[in-house]
Amino acid sequence: MKTAVVLILAMLAQAGGDVCLSQGMRDLGGAIQLAERELGSLILRGLASPTIWLGMGLLGVFFGLYAAALSWADLSFVLPATAFGYVINVACGYYFLHEAVTPARWAGSLLICLGVFCVSRSEMRTALAGGRAGES
């Protein structure tokens, strides 16, 4: 249960961080069209943006929770399980940033959900078998 709570919080922090960074960078304008000499000013403006700081802070929280989960749970469980964050990102991009989501991305999200389901089932089996894979 502890693993599930920590991983859900980690994925929410990651998705929140990604959305904030994306929104913050959009607020700064089209970086791709900027000349190289303007890169410094872009970075400075980025560092002055509270949204970007919030995004970086949330990604820091994600890394802390991810590392904490690895202190007791298997990497082979934690790593694929956190991939569910990609699905949250697709959903957040669709609902909050109004991004167009291609059928390939929806299909990928479905595959990730199935994969995470299989990995979480395998964790339950390992725990039931008395393995050292950590609790679920």
Binding site: S76, L79, P80, G108, L110, I112, G115, C118, V119, S122
Partner: peptide, 26 residues
């Protein structure tokens, strides 16, 4: 390296996740 016990179901789930992430990244 970490000597983790990985059964077939976990391998299968991991491959599905990898394929899914590849599709999402397109």
């Amino acid at each position: 390296i970490l000597k983790e016990n990985i059964n077939r179901l976990r391998w299968f789930g991991t491959v599905l996740v990898g394929l899914g992430v590849a599709l999402v990244s397109l």
